[in-house]
């Protein structure tokens, strides 16, 4: 190594030229300037907002009823207890949604006249549950299913989970279907040419690639569901929202709602950041070599 560099010239290591050094200095100045500008504008904007809020005539009243630290602290244990139910429902619903959505998406990609009824059924299902408001599905399942008197008492949290699965699997199945269709037909062709059956091709070739393509979209739906689990409170399940409602009535103060809301944000935050990071990374991978 050193022999060749010595043969070519006196320097053993590359040194940036004066031209490059000048460019770097310029870029550094530019970066410094933009950081300063954005910091200043953030401070100004935040200051204006705070001034408008605190300076408003009703601020003292609002602060007392929405941001009371003692009430917040007192209501926290109950709300956390409720949040634990939300988390359980979330986990159950996520697993259910993935299974049902995968099934639906696969049904919709089946070809051949034999599968027409299944295809039509899956299409009808996604149309119905994508159109119907979640809260109505919750009412129908939460109050309708117990009315059937088929099963012994089912906890409302379970009924809420079922309603969430029904609604979200319709959305997620469409995401899966988009992913399946985004896998290039030549992949299917190659797999079938090797003698793999339709099912093997789906399982081994198409679905793994489809999953990768739709991961950011799936995570986004997960974040949406994360906060919609709060809606099971309308069925009377004592989750974080319901607990906050009870505490609000107890203290005659809205602070517990703010606490519950912040807890939901905290719960969703890691997933939101992860989704953004993953999307950015995928975007960067697809645009290797370009500056924009």
């Amino acid at each position: 190594m050193t022999d060749t560099t010595d043969a070519r010239g006196s320097s053993t290591a590359w040194q940036p030229s004066t031209l490059e050094l000048e460019r770097r200095a310029f870029r550094k100045r530019q970066t410094g300037r933009s950081v300063l500008v954005s910091a200043l504008s953030t401070i100004v904007l935040a200051g204006l907002l705070a001034w408008a809020l605190i300076g408003s005539p009703g601020w003292a009243q609002v602060q007392q009823t929405f941001f009371d630290p003692t009430v917040a602290l007192a209501s926290l244990p109950r709300i956390l207890e409720g949040l634990w139910l939300n988390i359980q429902v979330l986990v159950g619903a996520s697993v259910g949604v993935v299974i049902v959505a995968l099934l639906l998406a696969t049904l919709r990609t089946l070809r051949g006249p034999v599968f027409f009824p299944l295809r039509a059924l899956a299409a009808g299902y996604t149309d119905l549950f994508r159109g119907m408001p979640l809260i109505i599905v919750l009412y129908l399942i939460g109050y309708g299913v117990p009315g059937l008197d088929f099963f012994p008492r089912v906890p409302v949290a379970v009924l809420g989970t079922i309603a969430l699965i029904l609604t979200y699997s319709a959305y997620v199945s469409e995401v899966f279907r988009a992913g399946i269709e985004a896998v290039h037909p030549s992949q299917r062709l190659a797999a079938r040419s090797l003698g793999l059956s339709h099912g093997q091709t789906m399982r081994r070739i198409v679905l793994p690639q489809a999953f990768r393509k739709v991961t950011p979209a799936l995570m986004n739906d997960f974040v949406a569901m994360q906060k919609d689990v709060g809606l099971i409170s309308v069925l009377g399940a004592v989750d974080a929202v319901r607990a906050a409602q009870i505490e609000t009535a107890h203290y005659f103060n809205f602070t517990p709602y703010v606490v519950a809301g912040l807890l939901f944000v905290l719960l969703a935050w890691p997933m939101i950041r992860l989704t953004d990071w993953l999307s950015a990374r995928m975007r960067a991978r697809e645009q290797v070599g370009s500056i924009v």
Partner: peptide
């Protein structure tokens, strides 16, 4: 048809290797 395809090897213009 799957059985027949298993007896024939095919190579495509764009390789079509499975990227995953």
């Amino acid at each position: 048809a799957d059985g027949v395809r298993a007896r024939i090897g095919v190579v495509f213009q764009h390789y079509n290797l499975f990227p995953h």
